[in-house]
């Protein structure tokens, strides 16, 4: 199983949120700690709804938490 193309800043955001644990984040967004671990390690792409929930926990916009490099490249191409 390859990693997803979507990268994220969850580890950094957790650090700046008083070293929030993966378990605490998991509880806030209603998933298991294993799922948070998989998302953080870019081994699982969350659903749009879950991605919004994660962004909301840190008070950030979706794009500040998740990034899709390929999308960035095609946006540059279109410009």
């Amino acid at each position: 199983m390859t990693k997803t193309n979507i990268t994220n800043q969850i580890r950094t955001l957790r650090f700046f949120a008083d070293e929030m644990s993966q378990a605490a984040l998991a509880e806030k967004i209603g998933v298991t700690r294993q799922t948070v671990m998989a998302i953080e390690a870019a081994k699982y792409s969350p659903s749009l709804e879950l991605a919004f929930k994660i962004a909301a926990v840190f008070g950030k916009e979706l794009g500040e938490v998740f990034e899709y490099p390929q999308g960035k490249q095609s946006a540059k191409r279109d410009a």
Binding site: V31, T32, T35, A38, Y44, P46
Partner: peptide
């Protein structure tokens, strides 16, 4: 038992 989330 943990309830299944979207990844499960």
């Amino acid at each position: 038992a943990e309830t299944a989330d979207e990844r499960d």
